[in-house]
C-alpha cells in the first residue's frame, strides 16, 4: 500500500524528474517491500523463448549491423527480432539496487551484463541510474549533478537501517556512487550493463539460451528461513539445474550471503548438483597478501583465470549494497564459487 499521499506524490515527482533530466535517481524514492513471492504470477512481461527477446533497447551500443545478422534462422519471429552483435554473458540475479552491476561494468567493458530484479521500483531505480551514468560518461562536463556528488563512499557513512532511511530528511549527499566520481576513467561508459524486471526463478530459460552465460552472481539472496519456504529460495537443488542449463561449461557461479545457514544450504545445493558444478576452493579466490592480480603457484585453471575469480569475489564482497551494509554492521560474509563443468556422460 502506498504511504501518506504526500510521500507517494514525492516519489512520483522525483521519479518523473529523474527520468526527464537523466539525473541520478535517489534510492529512497524507489524502496519497496522486501519480499516478493516467486510463485505468484505478478504482471511480468517476458519472451516466450530467448530467440524472441529483443535486447537492442537494453544495449543500443551493441546492436548488430545488418550484415552481422545471420539470415539462416527460419522461425518468423527469430528473423524479425533485432539482434545484438554478441550474447549476454554475465547475469546478476536479484540485483537489488545494482551496486554490483556498476562495479562490473568498467571491469568487463566488452561483456554484456544484465541485472535481474523482481521488484518493480527497485528495477526502475537501476534503470534510471544506468541511463544517468551513461549520460554522464558521455558528457562529463555538462553534468552538474556529478559535481554535487562528493567523494564519500557509502561504506564510510554511519550504519543505518534501510527502512528508517526513508523517514529521515534527505541527506545532503543522497546517493554517492564511487564509480560516478571520475566518469572519464570508465572504459565501457555503462553501455554494457542493463537491468530487467524478471522473476528469475521461473523465467531464466525464457531469457537465456542454453550454455550462453559465463558468469552468474547470486548475491545476498533473501534467506527465507522457514523450512516450509525453502522452495522460495533463489538457490535450490531444482534451480541449480537451471543455472547449469544457461551456463557455459567453464563458467562460474558466485554465491555470497551473511547468513551462515543459507550459505550451507547453497553449498549443498551446488555440491549435490550431480556433477554439474565443481567447487572452486577458497585458496583460489581468497584475497592474498600484497597481490595485484598476479601471484605465483597458479594451478588448475591458470593464473589469469584465478585472478579474475579473485577480483569478482572482491567486487561481490565490496560493491553490492548488501555487502556494504554487512561491512558497516561488522557482519560476516560467506562466499561460494562454483565452476560449471560439462554435463556428465549418459549412463
Amino acid at each position: 500500500m502506498g504511504g501518506p499521499p504526500n510521500k507517494k506524490q514525492k516519489r512520483e515527482e522525483h521519479r518523473n524528474e529523474a527520468k526527464a533530466e537523466g539525473e541520478l535517481p535517489k534510492k529512497k524514492f524507489y524502496r519497496q517491500r522486501a519480499h516478493a513471492n516467486p510463485f505468484s504470477d505478478h504482471a511480468l512481461t517476458y519472451p516466450a523463448s530467448p530467440s524472441q527477446m529483443d535486447w537492442t533497447p537494453h544495449y543500443p551500443s551493441f546492436v548488430a549491423t545488418k550484415s552481422e545478422v545471420k539470415p539462416e534462422s527460419d522461425a518468423a519471429d527469430e528473423a524479425t527480432t533485432p539482434r545484438l552483435d554478441r550474447q549476454l554473458e554475465i547475469a546478476d540475479i536479484g540485483c537489488g539496487f545494482g551496486g554490483l552491476l556498476f562495479a562490473l561494468a568498467p571491469k568487463y567493458p566488452d561483456s554484456l551484463i544484465l541485472g535481474l530484479e523482481i521488484r518493480t521500483s527497485v528495477t526502475e531505480y537501476v534503470e534510471q541510474k544506468i541511463l544517468a551514468m551513461r549520460a554522464q560518461a558521455k558528457n562529463p562536463s555538462v553534468q552538474p549533478n556529478i559535481t554535487k556528488l562528493g567523494p564519500l563512499d557509502e561504506d564510510t557513512k554511519p550504519p543505518k537501517s534501510e527502512l528508517n532511511e526513508d523517514t529521515k530528511p534527505p541527506p545532503t549527499n543522497p546517493d554517492p556512487s564511487p564509480t560516478a566520481v571520475s566518469p572519464s576513467q570508465v572504459p565501457g561508459s555503462y553501455t554494457n550493463i542493463s537491468v530487467l524486471r524478471a522473476n528469475t526463478m521461473k523465467f531464466l530459460p525464457n531469457l537465456f539460451p542454453p550454455t550462453s552465460l559465463s558468469k552468474i552472481f547470486l548475491c545476498f539472496p533473501d534467506p527465507h528461513f522457514k523450512t516450509r519456504k525453502h522452495k522460495a529460495r533463489i538457490v535450490s537443488p531444482g534451480l541449480v539445474s537451471e543455472y547449469a542449463y544457461v551456463m557455459k561449461p567453464g563458467g562460474v557461479a558466485y554465491t555470497i550471503t551473511d547468513v551462515e545457514d543459507l550459505h550451507l544450504w547453497m553449498c549443498s545445493a551446488f555440491r549435490g548438483s550431480g556433477g554439474l558444478f565443481e567447487e572452486v576452493p577458497g585458496d583460489v579466490w581468497e584475497e592474498r597478501e600484497g597481490e595485484d592480480g598476479l601471484d605465483g603457484g597458479g594451478k588448475g585453471m591458470g593464473e589469469a583465470w584465478e585472478a579474475e575469480v579473485r577480483e569478482d569475489v572482491r567486487i561481490m564482497r565490496e560493491e553490492t549494497e548488501e555487502g556494504k551494509k554487512v561491512t558497516r554492521n561488522g557482519g560476516q560474509k560467506f562466499v561460494g564459487v562454483w565452476r560449471r563443468v560439462a554435463d556428465p556422460p549418459w549412463p
Binding site: 516466450a48 523463448s49 530459460p205 539445474s241 556428465p344
Partner: peptide, 18 residues
Amino acid sequence: SRGPPQSHVIEGYCLAHT
C-alpha cells in the same frame, strides 16, 4: 530432462506457448 538418475540435467526447453 534426463531420466533418473540424471534428472538434474536439463537437455532443453520446448518454448513457444504464450
